[in-house]
Design a protein around this nucleic acid. Structure first.
Length: 112
DNA sequence: ACCATGACGTTTC
DNA sequence: CGAAACGCCATGG
């Protein structure tokens, strides 16, 4: 890692992820845009990959891509753990895709 | 410094 | 609708 394990950028990503309301989801691009880096959506996902190292538990299952598809489900333990977590929060998920995505979408730039 | 990789996003076919 | 190409940016070899 660099000077600090968690740069300010990472810290913000984790902070926003933890602020996602129960039963809601957001996209990597939305977080990146909120942080002022709309072109660094990949970095957000990359930060999530490191979220497992964070002491604080990051609800990464609430973060999906712009299409509402659970692209990162393979990074979780089980095969469909991510989907089950979302369904447990009342989010409809079919074939790794969130239904009524606009309805459950949470935009930090607007809500926060 | 260069190349390869990736939990993304948009455009094009 | 699905797959591929291109762009973007940070990290590692």
């Amino acid at each position: 890692m660099s000077k600090k394990e968690t740069d300010n950028f990472f810290e913000k990503v984790y902070a926003v992820a933890c602020l996602i309301p129960y039963g809601k989801v957001t996209s990597y691009g939305a977080i990146a845009t909120y942080l002022g880096m709309p072109r660094s959506a990949r970095m957000v996902g990359w930060a999530m990959s490191s979220s497992h190292s964070q002491e604080k538990e990051i609800p990464a299952h609430r973060v999906v891509n712009r299409n509402g598809i659970l692209t990162g489900k393979h990074h979780f333990q089980g095969k469909n753990l991510m989907q089950q977590l979302l369904e447990n929060e009342g989010i409809e998920v079919v074939d790794d895709k969130i239904q009524n995505f606009e309805n459950v979408f949470w935009n930090p730039s607007e809500e926060l």
